[in-house]
Write a protein that binds this DNA or RNA. Structure first.
Ligand SMILES: [Mn+2]
Ligand SMILES: [Mn+2]
Ligand SMILES: [Zn+2]
Ligand SMILES: [Zn+2]
Lengths: 151, 151
DNA sequence: GTGATAGATGCAAATGCTTTGCATTTGCAT
DNA sequence: ATGCAAATGCAAAGCATTTGCATCTATCAC
């Protein structure tokens, strides 16, 4: 199986950052590229296994942290799940709304903080370099189930 | 030293929730009430010590989790710091902008997500029950220091 | 006030995600 | 092909947080 073009791009991006291109990193990137939701290191590890790549979990941790360091990925911490999660940072970054019951995730298309950040820079003198947003609620399906249980 | 009126309120609030009023809990609430920024369990523990209250760290963990459970406090996870943090949830909840260099914190007075949450409920059918926002940047002082170092 | 009891605490051990040291392997420049 | 710094695998350590259990205590009925 040849690598998708995005991976090649990412790998080139890495070499430009003075980082070596390895089988493990390619597999990890492939998983991250294929996902539109944040993944924990363990989940990334599982998915590389499913793709027949034998990678050590430490390698996953080391590489995703490197991606974050180089601003190629974003790290969050999922409190419900109790783990850090990672996703590639794209110019059109996304935020998510998660159902606290079943875990369903809805993607929020535009960032609600863009304007706020500019305003804050004016007001505070801070250089705002990043943000995280987590939204949680109960999805329609779980709402129905929960209201049934309450009878 | 008699307890401030807010603490009494909080303790009453607790008994209404069927929770016992103890020396330890009073001290923890005092610390949380006195702080306008989120605190880690360990930081809360230290501050109760400074106030001459001898409390076990487990008790802090158990109580703040209980507060979160009862929606009396909000839990976040400070990725830079690597720890969960807690703050009392007030009706006029606040968000913060943190300097990644010196840790200075600026309070954001109005929640930029209120409108978005209502819009999301319309669009997705989710019942949106909460959110977290973290903003980070570099404060003016650190910006000056950093630009000096670069010479 | 006294006693009964469910709930709270302290302590220490366990948990589990994440990090790290080190021997070995490997990408990549020459 | 060779050399070497960087990357990996493995196992052990780190460390915030959780948990089991014995002891204590707030609260309430009497
Ligand atoms: Mn955004
Ligand atoms: Mn808000
Ligand atoms: Zn759901
Ligand atoms: Zn600063």
């Amino acid at each position: 199986m040849s690598k998708p073009v995005e991976i090649i791009d990412e790998l080139n991006l890495l070499s430009e950052h003075g980082v070596r291109n390895t089988r493990q990193r390619s597999a990890i990137l492939q998983v991250l590229l294929a996902s539109d939701i944040p993944l924990s290191a363990e989940r990334i590890h599982e998915k590389t296994k499913e793709a027949d790549a034998d990678i050590n979990l430490s390698t996953v941790y080391r590489f995703v942290e490197m991606l974050v360091e180089k601003n190629l990925a974003t790290k969050s911490f999922n409190l419900e799940y109790g783990r850090a999660t990672f996703e590639l940072s794209n110019p059109h970054h996304r935020h998510h709304l998660t159902c606290t019951h079943c875990g369903e995730i809805v993607v929020i298309r535009e960032c609600p903080l863009d304007k706020l950040c500019r305003a804050l820079e004016e007001d505070t003198g801070f250089a705002v370099i990043g943000h995280r947003i987590e939204l949680f609620g109960v999805c329609p399906k779980c709402q129905r189930e929960l209201s049934t249980e309450e009878l």
